[in-house]
Amino acid sequence: MSAAAGDFRLRDGRIGAVLLTGFAFAALLAPFLSPGDPLSIVGTPLVRPFTDAAVPLGTDRLGRDVLALILHGSRTTLAVALAAAFCALAVGAAVGAAAGLAGGWIDEGLMRLTEAFQTVPGFLLALAIVSVAGPSIASIVAAIAAGAWPGPARLVRAEVLSIRERDFVMAARAIGMHPFEIAWREVLPLALPPAVALVSVIVAGAILTEAALAFLGLGNPNVASWGALIAEGRAVLRTAPFLSIVPGTALVVAVLGVHLAGEGIAARLSAPVHR
């Protein structure tokens, strides 16, 4: 049973990898696929999708090309999601490692801090940070990372706590290695990989949070963003629902791709253990 389930998950992972590759291509090649400013007006407003070959996905209320907006929006989404995931992992790993290695009241204090961040609803925290710091790519990345770092922090701390008791760490201590060297060379290389498995969950969450912030009008107004595009379509939801549905579909496909790829990686990592 588990072998069959594993095969399914590996296949799901391949589908996810294909979706993600398409997503990455769209983001990288956007300036070549649709040159020029995606926010410029190219035709009559509210052209329906699949009716005009010049604008395959139609135009929005201002007559801007929806396909160009989606292609360029994928750059914003990808950049913000990857940067936020990197920051969340870096901060989480640093806090978790410090807590696990130092122990005592430093551990206690850092864990209470982690708990406090988990107590405040992440999206409300993101709203507060963006509204205080102003909507820019940097503040949006910081806002998303602020809600995502506690997960990796707890995981890395738990790993560090189990690794620091093992024999090879004892041996390193016995030969008089400096505590920082033990942390850097002996403990961290083993404690970090499990946290990296959280990447898919964090990236998926970051894509959704970025879209939700942009949907509420808290994105950078000068760059194309899927969330902003959905909000734009909301104003004409009754007459032109496609304007919200098309970018939303892109969002769902991207997040699904991340989840599927994550499942595939998890299946690959856990496969030898189960068989």
Partner: peptide, 30 residues
């Protein structure tokens, strides 16, 4: 586990988990 119903529900839940709440709300309104 591993049956057709399990496969369908697992994939369906993954797809549902990828849907942003605000967009699902808009689609439901439409």
């Amino acid at each position: 586990p591993g049956s057709a119903a399990d496969r369908a529900l697992s994939l369906g839940s993954l797809a549902l988990y990828a849907v942003p709440g605000f967009w699902l709300g808009l689609v439901l309104i439409v």
